[in-house]
Simulated scan of single mutants.
Amino acid sequence: MKSGLTIRADNAASVLESLRQLSGMDVLVGIPADNAAREDSPISNAELGYLHSTGATVEIDGVTVTLPPRPFLEMGIEDSKPRTTAHLKSAATAALEGKTEAARVQLESAGQIARDAAKGIIGAGDRLHPLSEKTLERRRAEGLPGDKPLYAHGYILRSINYVVREK
């Protein structure tokens, strides 16, 4: 008895290759090394981003300062999860169809969405631990506007990015 199934094209090799490539890729959101250097500080944006995200006690110009945790990356990634998950699923579907480039485009989209969400956390500022009165006084003395954490100069905000890379 015949099954009625007709094979029109065998694209198993391209599907397997696409899946192999997809499984060997990561989407990373954060502050890449090429965006990390600062002219005004020996501490890089990546280091400052980490210290601000986790909280820390550091010495700045001979003064000990305690930074409360302001996990902007984690919050942004969590906020964007429904949208990024949809793109990651689309990447897997494209890989199953043997469409490697389409899968990569979906990974890029997921990275862009998560990056923008993390930047949005800083831009809004309303969910981050507020600045201390001492910091606000220092900002006013330096002529820096606003009271949003991590937003005075925009260095960390502008350094947030994503990469799609091979593992």
Rank of each mutant, 00 (worst) to 15 (best):
G146H: 02
D34L: 09
R20E: 08
E166T: 11
L16D: 10
A86C: 10
A12N: 08
V164G: 00
R8S: 02
M1I: 14
K99P: 05
I160L: 01
I121C: 01
I31C: 02
N11A: 14
A95E: 00
R139N: 11
D79A: 15
H87L: 15
Y155I: 04
S109D: 13
L144Q: 12
G111W: 01
I160V: 05
R127Q: 09
L19A: 12
E59F: 01
I31M: 02
G55T: 11
K99Y: 05
L150N: 04
K89Q: 15
S3T: 14
L96D: 03
S3Q: 06
R38A: 00
A103K: 00
K89H: 14
I60V: 13
A102Q: 13
R138C: 09
L22D: 05
G76W: 02
S132L: 02
L22R: 03
R83C: 03
K148I: 03
R165P: 00
L51M: 09
Y155E: 09
E142C: 04
D61V: 12
E133T: 02
L67K: 03
L150D: 07
L150T: 05
R115P: 02
D61L: 14
L67S: 02
V63K: 13
R104I: 15
D10F: 01
K2A: 13
K119P: 04
S90C: 07
R104P: 04
G62E: 10
D61Q: 15
G62M: 12
G62L: 10
L48A: 14
Q21I: 12
S109C: 04
E74N: 04
G146W: 00
G62T: 05
V163G: 08
K167V: 12
Y162W: 08
A124S: 13
P145F: 11
V15N: 03
R20N: 12
V15L: 02
A141F: 03
V63F: 09
E97G: 03
L150I: 05
A92N: 08
S132W: 09
A12H: 03
A46R: 00
E142P: 00
A91V: 08
I77T: 06
I156W: 09
R140D: 10
R127T: 10
G62N: 11
T6H: 11
L73M: 08
